[in-house]
Write a protein that binds this DNA or RNA. Sequence first.
DNA 1: CACGTTAATATCGTGCACGATGCAAATATA
DNA 2: TATATTTGCATCGTGCACGATATTAACGTG
Lengths: 154, 154
Amino acid sequence: MDDKQLYLSSQVCFPLYSASRLITKAYKPYLDELGLTYPQYLVLMVLWENNGVSVNQITEKLGLNTNTLSPLLKRMEKMKLLQRSRSSEDERSVIIQLTESGKQLKLKARPIPEKLLTEILSDNIKIEDVLKLKDILNELIVVLSNKTESSRKI
Amino acid sequence: MDDKQLYLSSQVCFPLYSASRLITKAYKPYLDELGLTYPQYLVLMVLWENNGVSVNQITEKLGLNTNTLSPLLKRMEKMKLLQRSRSSEDERSVIIQLTESGKQLKLKARPIPEKLLTEILSDNIKIEDVLKLKDILNELIVVLSNKTESSRKI
DNA sequence: CACGTTAATATCGTGCACGATGCAAATATA
DNA sequence: TATATTTGCATCGTGCACGATATTAACGTG
């Protein structure tokens, strides 16, 4: 038995970690123009699709906890992108509403995904590869999030 | 023209970001036993393969900058996993040497990749999928790191 | 050999991630 | 209806990531 398994090159996890950081870096120039970080952009995507959701609903969509989102949303409120307010039905819930400028950003953000895709596509990466990548990653997410879910129940 | 592209579900980048965090979380119970974080584990993998390399060589292997690695290596030195010393040939370089306990950890870490793989494999994710995933990610990394390289030259 | 440039690290500031903990509102249970 | 439990969110502490900047050593050019 050798220990090839401990080589960086033979792991799946390192490429995943590395690619994720590189993608965020690739987004940066476009998001800089909007004055956003990548996680802030994710929050906006949730809100553009469904304005007026609770913090809890955002945590579920993004898989982030409130200890990450609370300060992030506070910063975004300070940036006048959104407003936080207690729900009247359930005083524990905080509802996140986009401001006008938060809504406006959607127009500026619209071309970003397309631009990123063209950066990625090349001789060695075709659109089928990107779609295949997405499929496998989504399966992986299902498996791994079920894992942490079931361990929570114990 | 619609804006489906701005839906979380249609992006590749979000699954990548999400899966990366979930994988790190999956590692956590095993790394906790060794008292390591995931980036620290990555540094050790580099050193197990090539002890006595410079900080610069580690940055290249992991794609991390010195502003991330310097404090990380300091913490690892404090944990008695490695030693930092100036190179005698080039006084600018800092050479990283594993301590005995740093070397010993390799034995404890050996079974981890296997364990993680079995956690991932399931009805919907076969070994071919994992290999395919790795291949596409590595191509993606090549494309994206060339990108940032060429933009540096400008 | 002086001196400008490059290269290898380090430091600083900011923004995530996330485990642990706290707190108040809602809900369940006795 | 008291009380225990759960739920939704916030706060705190630590460790990455990373842009910007500083520092010192090596190198190149006149």
